[in-house]
Simulated scan of single mutants.
Amino acid sequence: MIFQVDNSSTIQAIISDDPIRRRMLEIVRSLNLPDCWIGAGFVRNAVWDHLHGRSSS
Rank of each mutant, 00 (worst) to 15 (best):
I2A: 06
I2L: 13
F3Y: 13
F3H: 12
F3W: 11
Q4L: 10
Q4K: 14
Q4A: 06
Q4P: 01
Q4Y: 10
V5D: 02
V5M: 09
V5S: 06
V5F: 07
D6W: 06
N7P: 06
N7L: 07
S8L: 15
S8R: 14
S8C: 13
S9G: 02
S9P: 00
T10M: 09
I11V: 14
I11S: 02
I11W: 02
Q12C: 10
A13S: 14
I14H: 01
I14R: 01
I14F: 02
I15P: 04
S16L: 09
S16F: 08
S16A: 13
D17A: 13
D17S: 14
D17C: 02
D18K: 00
D18Q: 04
I20K: 14
R21V: 10
R21H: 13
R21G: 07
R21L: 11
R23Q: 14
R23W: 11
L25A: 02
E26D: 12
E26C: 00
I27P: 05
I27H: 05
I27V: 10
V28N: 05
V28Y: 02
V28K: 07
S30C: 00
S30H: 02
L31R: 12
L31Y: 02
N32C: 03
N32D: 13
D35M: 04
D35L: 06
D35T: 04
C36T: 15
C36A: 15
C36N: 12
C36K: 08
W37M: 03
I38P: 05
I38A: 10
G39K: 06
A40N: 10
F42I: 09
F42A: 02
V43D: 05
V43C: 03
V43T: 08
V43N: 01
V43H: 00
R44V: 15
N45R: 08
A46K: 01
A46N: 05
V47H: 01
V47F: 07
W48G: 04
D49I: 04
D49E: 11
L51F: 06
L51E: 02
H52Q: 08
H52I: 07
H52D: 00
H52E: 07
G53N: 14
R54E: 07
S55P: 05
S55A: 11
S55T: 09
